[in-house]
Computed example of a mutant assay.
Amino acid sequence: MQINDKVYNILKYVAQIALPALGTLYFALAGIWGFPYGEEIVGTITAVDTFLGVLLGISAATYSRKNQAIDNKETK
């Protein structure tokens, strides 16, 4: 699986910054203001974030392997 650079960068930002920040914000506000389903919502955000991280890791590994193969062909 490989995605283009623009999509990769957006998803990387979402996975590394936006979702963890959103989960932390909701968890804190749920504790302070008594918002419902704090654990369930934060658990869901964490699960989605982990899944997205795995997909991005697979994409990065595929990209690296592809570029190494191209580099190896060019040096021969």
Rank of each mutant, 00 (worst) to 15 (best):
M1C: 05
Q2T: 14
I3R: 01
I3F: 01
I3H: 03
D5K: 14
D5R: 09
D5A: 11
D5Y: 07
D5S: 13
K6Y: 11
K6D: 12
V7L: 12
Y8H: 10
Y8M: 02
N9M: 11
I10N: 06
L11P: 02
K12H: 13
K12C: 03
K12N: 09
Y13H: 10
Y13W: 10
Y13D: 07
V14H: 03
V14W: 06
A15Y: 00
Q16F: 10
Q16V: 06
I17V: 14
I17H: 14
I17C: 14
A18Y: 10
L19V: 02
P20T: 01
P20L: 00
P20H: 00
A21E: 11
A21V: 10
L22A: 08
L22V: 03
L22R: 02
G23N: 01
T24Q: 11
L25C: 05
L25F: 13
L25K: 08
L25Y: 09
F27M: 11
F27V: 07
F27G: 15
F27L: 08
L29K: 07
A30M: 01
A30I: 00
A30F: 04
A30T: 03
G31N: 07
G31F: 02
G31E: 01
I32Q: 04
W33A: 14
W33S: 06
G34S: 01
G34T: 04
P36E: 01
P36T: 05
P36G: 03
P36Q: 00
P36K: 00
E39V: 08
E39C: 00
E40F: 05
E40V: 07
E40K: 07
I41E: 05
I41F: 08
V42A: 06
G43I: 01
T44C: 09
T44V: 06
T44K: 14
I45L: 07
T46H: 08
T46D: 15
T46P: 00
T46K: 14
A47H: 09
A47D: 10
A47Y: 09
V48I: 15
V48Y: 08
V48Q: 07
D49V: 08
D49S: 13
D49Y: 03
F51M: 12
F51N: 10
F51D: 11
F51R: 15
L52E: 00
G53T: 00
V54L: 12
L55C: 14
L55A: 12
L56C: 03
L56H: 03
G57N: 03
G57H: 02
I58E: 09
I58A: 04
I58M: 06
I58W: 01
S59G: 01
A60Y: 02
A60W: 08
T62L: 14
T62K: 13
Y63W: 14
Y63T: 15
Y63L: 13
S64H: 14
R65G: 14
R65C: 05
K66C: 02
K66G: 02
N67M: 11
A69H: 04
A69M: 15
I70Y: 11
I70H: 05
N72G: 04
N72W: 13
K73W: 12
K76P: 06
K76H: 09
